[in-house]
C-alpha cells in the first residue's frame, strides 16, 4: 500500500497536539486505519494464496514433508492422466449443459415477472426459494426425488411412458441429473439480476416499437435482449464460475462417479488434496481451473462485445 500522508503546511507554530491531530485526521491516515484489517485479510485470503498455489503446483508436497520442486511434473500429470483429462472435459460439459439453458430460463422468468400484476412478489419469492436453500438441503431433497424406486421424478415420467431410470448411478444420466439440480437452484438468483437489468431499459423505446407494430416477442428479441447484453454477460460469467465451483452437489450426490462421469475439476482438487494428500497435484489442478475461469470470462466479454458492434 502506497499511502502518502499529507504533510501539514506549517504556516504558524502549532502545538504538538494540534500537529498530531492534523496527522491523525489526514485522509491518508484514516484510510490506512480503515483499510489495514480488511486489506490485510484479503491479502492473506485472496492474493497471497494465488501465488503460493502457483508455487505449490510446481512441487511435490505430501503435507508431512516440505515441498520439493518438481518442475512441470504435476501439470504433465493433469494433462496426461485419463481421469484428470476427463475431469476437465466434465467441467466444460457441465457448464455447457447448465449455463445457456439456465440463463435463458432465468431471463424468460424475469421478463414475465417484469410486468405489473397481482401476486408478483409472491411469485418472485417462490422462484427465489431454491437459492436460499443450502446446497446440502437441495442435494438431500433431490437424492430422494431421483430415487429409482420411490422417487418423484420417475413417478412423473411414468405418466408419459418413460420407464424408471437410476438417475444418479446411470453413467449417461448422472451429469444430467446434477445439471437439473443446478438449473433449478440457479434460476432465482439470476432472475433477480435480470429483473434489475430490465428496470433500466427505457420504457419509451419499447412503447415506440409497440406503436410501430412490433409484437411482444419481436420487442423481446430485438430490443430487450440487445439492451440487456451487459447484464446477460454478467450472469453468464458468474453462473459459469459457480458451476465450476459446484463441489457440494458432486460430493453429496455422485462422489465423482459413476465411471468418473461427474468428476469435475473441483472434485479432483478435493480428492488429490484431502483424500490422497497430494497437495502439489491439487494445486496444479486448481491452477488449471483458475486459467479456465479466466479464459471463459475473457471469451464471454469478447462474444458480447462483437455482437454489440
Amino acid at each position: 500500500m502506497n499511502i502518502v500522508t499529507q504533510t501539514p503546511a506549517v504556516k504558524q507554530k502549532k502545538s504538538l497536539g494540534q500537529r498530531l491531530y492534523k496527522y491523525y485526521n489526514s485522509q491518508a491516515f484514516v484510510a490506512l486505519l480503515f483499510l489495514i484489517i480488511p486489506v490485510g485479510l484479503l491479502i492473506i485470503l485472496k492474493i497471497y494464496p494465488i501465488f503460493y498455489n502457483l508455487y505449490l503446483s510446481f512441487t511435490r508436497y505430501e503435507l508431512f514433508e516440505p515441498p520439493r520442486f518438481v518442475g512441470l511434473r504435476n501439470y504433465k500429470w493433469v494433462f496426461q492422466n485419463d481421469v484428470t483429462r476427463q475431469s476437465i472435459w466434465n467441467t466444460l460439459l457441465f457448464t455447457i449443459e447448465a449455463v445457456p439453458l439456465g440463463t435463458a430460463l432465468a431471463l424468460v422468468v424475469a421478463k414475465l415477472l417484469d410486468e405489473n400484476f397481482y401476486g408478483k412478489i409472491m411469485y418472485r419469492t417462490l422462484y427465489y426459494l431454491p437459492v436460499i436453500s443450502s446446497i446440502v438441503v437441495s442435494a438431500m431433497i433431490f437424492r430422494w426425488i431421483f430415487n429409482p424406486q420411490q422417487g418423484l421424478l420417475n413417478y412423473f415420467l411414468g405418466f408419459i411412458g418413460i420407464p424408471p431410470q437410476t438417475w444418479l448411478s446411470d453413467p449417461n444420466l448422472a451429469l444430467l441429473s446434477l445439471v437439473m439440480v443446478t438449473i433449478w437452484g440457479s434460476i432465482g438468483g439470476n432472475m433477480i439480476i435480470f429483473l434489475a437489468g430490465l428496470q433500466d431499459i427505457p420504457k419509451e423505446v419499447l412503447e415506440a416499437a409497440k406503436v410501430d407494430g412490433a409484437n411482444a416477442f419481436q420487442r423481446f428479441i430485438q430490443i430487450t435482449i440487445p439492451l440487456l447484453r451487459p447484464v446477460i454477460l454478467f450472469v453468464v460469467v458468474t453462473f459459469t464460475i459457480s458451476t465450476f465451483r459446484n463441489f457440494g452437489l458432486i460430493f453429496l450426490l455422485t462422489q465423482g462417479g459413476p465411471l468418473n462421469r461427474t468428476n469435475t475439476l473441483v472434485w479432483e482438487v478435493y480428492m488429490s488434496v484431502f483424500a490422497n494428500l497430494r497437495l502439489g497435484r491439487g494445486a496444479a489442478l486448481s491452477m488449471v481451473m483458475l486459467v479456465m475461469v479466466f479464459i471463459l470470462t475473457i471469451l464471454s466479454f469478447r462474444v458480447i462485445r462483437e455482437r454489440q458492434g
Binding site: 485472496k46 465450476f244 486448481s286
Partner: peptide, 29 residues
C-alpha cells in the same frame, strides 16, 4: 478518502472476486 494507489488497490481487490474460493483452498487451508 483520497490516497495514493487507491484505484490500483481497489481494482486489484475487485479482480480477486473472479477467483473462486475453491481454487485457493489449499493455501488457505
Amino acid at each position: 478518502l483520497h490516497f495514493k494507489g487507491k484505484n490500483i488497490l481497489f481494482f486489484s481487490l475487485l479482480a480477486t472476486m473472479m477467483v473462486p474460493f475453491e481454487v485457493l483452498i489449499i493455501p488457505v487451508f
